[in-house]
Amino acid sequence: MNTPLEQFLIKPIFRIYNNWIDFTITNSTIYLIIGISLILIIFNLAFKDNKLIKGRWGLVLETTYKKIEEIAKEMIPGEYKRYIPFTIILFLFILTNNLIGLVPYSFTTTAHFIVTITLSLTIMIGVTIIGVVKHKFNFINLFIPQGLNQGFLRLMIPLIFFIEVLSYLMRVISLSVRLAANLLSGHTLLKIIANFGLKYTISFPILLILPLGLLSAIYVLEIGVAIIQAYVFTLLTTTYIKDAELLH
């Protein structure tokens, strides 16, 4: 690997290409499948006959469920139960792919903007549909803050409406960039330090202790970042669902 960014290259593994079809399986596709498969395996190990088994994986899922339920209940009182399955799967999907990227010589799918923006765009389309179906034309009130229709403030409604709509659309970008950028920067830093350790300490192995210690510390930090970014993504998604449900 010549550069730290080379680890993020998407490479075709299998391709069918002709005048009628262009079907390509890349390393990103493979790792996305691995991530989904791991989630299914965890659920299979944790559940038996539709009952939660109190094993290691059962405790992980139970703890995750309780935390997600607390977030949803606080954000969307009265409507939260219908969104718990989605938010749990979303959290586990992002977390699993984040952690897979920390395995040496693996591939980080969630460090790619195309993956995260597709995920965030899908979420925002779904959230918008929820708001429109539930509130019909009143969904437009989401973009007009309360108390703005009095006196001189009425003149500001078009400007505020435009800003709110723009802010709403930018959620797609902010949600995706936040996740991809954090993972991209962290993994790049890990690769730079690893290359430094191998290149400049090969003649003096004793000096390897410094980059190795630093690498270990950053690796632990990256595990924390992987968990936090999955949590933040899920939390923001729940916030957007709340806006669609309650319009405030």
Rank of each mutant, 00 (worst) to 15 (best):
T3H: 14
E6H: 01
F14A: 11
W20V: 14
I21P: 12
I25C: 03
N27G: 07
S28F: 02
Y31P: 06
Y31V: 01
G35S: 09
I42W: 14
F47V: 05
F47C: 11
K51V: 09
K51F: 05
W57L: 14
W57P: 05
V60E: 02
K66F: 01
E70S: 14
I71A: 03
G78W: 13
K81Y: 09
Y83Q: 04
I89E: 05
I94M: 02
I100P: 00
V103Q: 09
P104T: 07
T110F: 00
V115W: 05
I117L: 11
T118V: 04
G126M: 12
L142R: 03
I144L: 11
P145K: 10
L148P: 04
L148A: 11
Q150S: 09
I157H: 03
P158A: 00
P158S: 01
M170K: 12
I173E: 10
S174G: 15
L175F: 09
V177K: 06
L183G: 00
L184G: 13
T188C: 12
L189S: 13
K191W: 06
K191T: 11
N195P: 14
G197I: 10
I209R: 08
L214F: 02
A217M: 11
V220E: 08
A226S: 11
A230P: 00
V232F: 14
F233Y: 05
L236Y: 03
K242W: 12
